[in-house]
Design a binder for these strands. Sequence first.
DNA 1: CATGAATGAGCTTTCATTCAT
DNA 2: AATGAATGAAAGCTCATTCAT
Lengths: 207, 207, 207, 207
Amino acid sequence: MATGSKNSDKHKRILDAAISVFARNGFYNSKVAEIAKEAKVADGTIYLYFKNKDDILIKLFEDKMNEMIGALTTALEGVTDPIEKIRVYIRSHFAMVAANPDLMEVITVELRQSTKFMKEYANEQFNRYLKILSDMIREGKDKGLIRDDISPGIQKRALFGMMDELSLYLVLAGDKGKYDIEQMYKEASDSFIRGLTCYECNEEIKG
Amino acid sequence: MATGSKNSDKHKRILDAAISVFARNGFYNSKVAEIAKEAKVADGTIYLYFKNKDDILIKLFEDKMNEMIGALTTALEGVTDPIEKIRVYIRSHFAMVAANPDLMEVITVELRQSTKFMKEYANEQFNRYLKILSDMIREGKDKGLIRDDISPGIQKRALFGMMDELSLYLVLAGDKGKYDIEQMYKEASDSFIRGLTCYECNEEIKG
Amino acid sequence: MATGSKNSDKHKRILDAAISVFARNGFYNSKVAEIAKEAKVADGTIYLYFKNKDDILIKLFEDKMNEMIGALTTALEGVTDPIEKIRVYIRSHFAMVAANPDLMEVITVELRQSTKFMKEYANEQFNRYLKILSDMIREGKDKGLIRDDISPGIQKRALFGMMDELSLYLVLAGDKGKYDIEQMYKEASDSFIRGLTCYECNEEIKG
Amino acid sequence: MATGSKNSDKHKRILDAAISVFARNGFYNSKVAEIAKEAKVADGTIYLYFKNKDDILIKLFEDKMNEMIGALTTALEGVTDPIEKIRVYIRSHFAMVAANPDLMEVITVELRQSTKFMKEYANEQFNRYLKILSDMIREGKDKGLIRDDISPGIQKRALFGMMDELSLYLVLAGDKGKYDIEQMYKEASDSFIRGLTCYECNEEIKG
DNA sequence: CATGAATGAGCTTTCATTCAT
DNA sequence: AATGAATGAAAGCTCATTCAT
């Protein structure tokens, strides 16, 4: 009775198993039976909680994107400086990678496939996530901290693409990678922010 | 040579068909039979030119990555300024997207799936491609044009990730996108280069 | 008896639901869960009253065949003329169709499938039903009202087959049918009886 | 090379196997794999010739109904007397039963299930078949050989229903049946025709 | 070299049935 | 007796791959 999650326990177990299995094999090489086995439920049980195999992935994205948005929103609470917000985002994204490598691998690897596959579905959450990024940049522009000639709509994607690729590297390289998260955080945030902010560099670059 | 071209004709037709089919459906939802039909060859003929379905994707990457490396190398010929080289790369990458949207969609979308799937195979070409990027950055450092505290190994991925995500947007948005390639080129190159180069911004950022 | 009615209530509800569901989908396309839902009982409850899905159909036949035999017996009470008995049967059968189209659809459609499927089971009731028909015919022969060269064993099947097919038509055509029950009754009974009885026609037919 | 039916051989083998398997188990208890095994083809081969399991049954009906219509049409060639035509039909139907008991069992048993299941499909052939019967009866009326008060639309169904049920009995009883085909033919044709024709019986029946 | 009919392993999904509550 | 979540066997169908022609 302490845990009212008697049932939803299974929902979570299936989702966790799916993350692990998808990370190991990729979505298309994963078998529903393997997820069931890892979740310690019967094959059929999965279909009590999810419409079909696709639905597992979709719900996985919706769920986890929501969590990521929540975590990011929490991390940004009390941060007022837009530039600092960008740093907080980058740090928080890398922290996610360190804490949930399997999940991040799935999101990073499968979201691409799924950008098409899920055009109709989970993109909404993804767009909400991206919007947080463009909002930070837009706010920086409004406050005069970020250059006028910056387009938040382009830079949100540039930022996400950079983070996505660096995350993929971290996740796939595992412990064998040359770079640690701290170093990546520093370099990614410094250079990206410098790119958005420096007014002095103009002549140099254009000249 | 007369017959040689007859054969490679089919090889090329299969590869071109694969690009179109993979772009339309994704690798795992594409059927060998559909590729055969689009290439106007028999199903079995494909297995005279490729070991199996995976092999089509692998060879596709090797082939096209080689072409991209060649095109980029050609574009870089005569360019000596490392900073200018980065601009040339960005311009050339966007040009590829405009000229071969299907191909770029396949590479952009499937390379992720395949980074794992193809760990043993085509990565070699991909790494050669990435190395061109880190070489440009390292050269910039050596010439004092790029900051000392920049890691070419991290920045090559940051740069590729940014370009990959912007390309994906262009490719998926099609004509409906808000941004044109020219604008993206300008903004991506300016801000990325600014991020690598500006010495003056240090205090501002750190302070 | 108070609790007895509570129980048989569920038994009846399940049977009624089964009639409606089987009529709608056919036996093999009907789901136990759908019957349960329509009977407003839990899936598992069905297995307190029936051994399995097959058993529902078997009991349905036994039950309803019994009712039909009862109804027919009642209708025949006081009728002494064997020829009139045949008329009463035909009229009573069509009346069943009009009053319980779903039930008659199930019996008419599924009994075939089930003649095999139920070879061991419910045939007993069906044979009792058929026997009423042959008894009427035999009685007619004994009384000299029906021709000597008629085989009750064949004609009981001919009669049932005719009624079965006409019922099927009525049931499937619904309101859109061209013929009404009254007309069918008249034509079916007149011609069938004529076939059994006419002595004068012999030459004509044989000649 | 004599047999150009190299391929359609398989089509026929699958259909023949389906008849035998469906007759043995009924449609819904038959497995595609069992049909494949009996036809000595691979499971997948079936799907080169038929869209799905349902389609096998549908095509089976279309095919065999066509054959039956053809056989009946041939048998009727040169027969001018409508009454004789009815006899020819009855004889020809029983002959089909004797020659192809499995097929007739499938048609007889599954056509019911399928009257619903196939509402959209093969009914066309079935209706063509029925129409031959009503045409014979109508012709008899026109020539004054069949009573005025007979409805061809009702009697075609009565006739078919009678034949269908008698066939079912023959097919299911096998050799154990009490009646032989010759006897059934005589009794079914005599009494059915008497029912349609006798003018003299009127008073007797009505009175 | 080319074909495409044939193969059959393998996967998703369904659903009758069970059993802890 | 009643429930309904959970089970897992079973089967239809797909599609990469082969091979006789």
